[in-house]
């Protein structure tokens, strides 16, 4: 690729003083966050706190205007080659699935490996079938997304992201658009993924999942990181008043 890799040791994502504005609105006010290889970080916080915007800056779906973001030793700048290199190392799962409706499930999964990674079709399809088995829907390969349930669609979206063999997976509220009975099937896949050693950043309101799976919980409010701690400590002894308020709202509703 020709890009320079910085020496970063174990830290796969480094964010230093990241700022972003939408017009005059200051969404991100100086985020500092470091994620280690294999770590599972859950980001929570009230809506509008900038948590989705923040994870979208990591693969540059949103541009940050101040500060540095370094992913696997590559700094995110305006250099298109860097952006492409980083994007192919980061998989992303969206709240609204965003599967390609004009392609079958199999084509959804193989499209990027064939066109971006330049793998031969046969190899891409073989991997796609394995991934579909891994997310528990091997029999749906030749259906179109519109023929699947929400939970199945989100599992296809996870398989699609994994097909690029990413080093990091970003989840932007992956279960928020799902019916309650389908949330579990998606969380099960994510649990299995976390156990396999994948580096994950998950924006979610599923506190049970956070408690069980994550290594660290990061609490966002008003464009800043208010508090971060391992889950046991986070739920038992929140340090900040805002965190306590948020937890009391989300855990008692």
């Amino acid at each position: 690729m020709g890009e320079e890799r910085l020496e970063v040791g174990d830290d796969i994502i480094i964010c230093r003083d990241v700022h972003k504005w939408f017009g005059d609105f200051h969404v991100l006010r100086g985020i500092n966050l470091t994620v280690k290889r294999g770590e599972v970080v859950v980001i929570c916080g009230p809506s509008g706190s900038g948590k989705s915007t923040f994870i979208r800056t990591i693969n540059r779906l949103e541009e940050h205007q101040r500060g540095d973001i370094i992913v696997d030793g590559i700094e995110l700048t305006h250099d298109v080659r860097n952006i492409a290199a980083i994007r192919s190392e980061i998989g992303m799962v969206f709240q609204s699935f965003n599967l390609f409706p004009h392609l079958t499930v199999l084509q959804n999964i193989t499209l990027a490996p064939i066109w971006v990674r330049k793998w031969p079709k046969a190899r891409a399809e073989e991997i796609a079938h394995k991934l579909l088995a891994r997310v528990g829907i091997p029999e749906q390969a030749h259906k179109y997304p519109g023929q699947l349930s929400g939970g199945q669609q989100q599992r296809v979206a996870i398989a699609r992201a994994l097909a690029m063999e990413p080093k990091i997976m970003l989840f932007d509220e992956p279960t928020s658009a799902l019916d309650p009975e389908m949330i579990k099937e998606v969380l099960d896949v994510m649990r299995e993924l976390a156990r396999s050693g994948m580096t994950m950043i998950v924006v979610t309101h599923e506190m049970g999942f956070a408690k069980e799976v994550s290594d660290r919980i990061v609490f966002f409010d008003d464009g800043q990181i208010v508090e971060q701690a391992p889950p046991a400590e986070f739920f038992a002894h929140p340090r900040e008043e805002r965190t306590r308020l948020f937890l009391s709202q989300i855990l008692t509703h």
Binding site: A84, S88, F94, L99, L111, V116, A157, A161
Partner: peptide
């Protein structure tokens, strides 16, 4: 075409031309 389609394709590392002509 919803913006989410473009974002999903870009997040997979596709180039601008690929996003336009494939998605």
């Amino acid at each position: 075409i919803p913006q989410g389609q473009v974002e999903a394709a870009r997040a997979l590392g596709m180039s601008g031309l690929q996003v336009t002509f494939l998605i």
